[in-house]
Simulated scan of single mutants.
Amino acid sequence: MEKSKEKVKLAYEALDEKKGEEITIIDIKDISIIADYFIIASGSNALQVDALMNSVLEKLGKNGYEPLRIEGIRSASWILMDYGDVIVHVFSKEDRLFYNLERIWRDGKTVSIDQL
Rank of each mutant, 00 (worst) to 15 (best):
E2G: 00
V111W: 05
K18W: 03
K62W: 03
G61K: 05
L60F: 11
I113S: 11
N45F: 08
A11H: 11
I79G: 00
I23L: 03
I28Q: 11
L57P: 01
R69Q: 12
L68I: 12
V56Y: 14
W105K: 12
L52V: 11
V86C: 08
V88H: 07
A51P: 12
V56L: 14
L101A: 07
D36V: 02
A35I: 04
A76V: 02
D30K: 12
L116T: 07
E2Y: 00
K3M: 13
Y65C: 07
N45G: 02
I28G: 13
M81G: 05
Y99W: 14
A76Q: 14
G64C: 10
L47D: 09
K18R: 15
A14N: 06
D114N: 14
L10M: 07
F38N: 04
G61C: 11
K59I: 04
M1P: 07
S32Q: 12
L52T: 00
E13G: 04
E21I: 05
E6C: 02
K18V: 07
T24N: 08
I28K: 11
S75F: 10
Y12V: 10
Q48V: 06
D16G: 02
W78Y: 08
Y12H: 14
K18I: 09
Q115R: 07
I70T: 06
V8G: 02
A11Y: 10
K109L: 12
K9S: 15
E102W: 13
E17R: 12
I40E: 01
D36C: 08
L60S: 05
L97R: 10
G43E: 08
V88N: 04
W105L: 13
W105N: 09
M1S: 04
S44A: 04
A11P: 05
I113F: 10
S32C: 10
H89P: 02
I73C: 02
S55Y: 02
S42Q: 04
D107S: 12
Y65A: 02
A14D: 03
K9W: 03
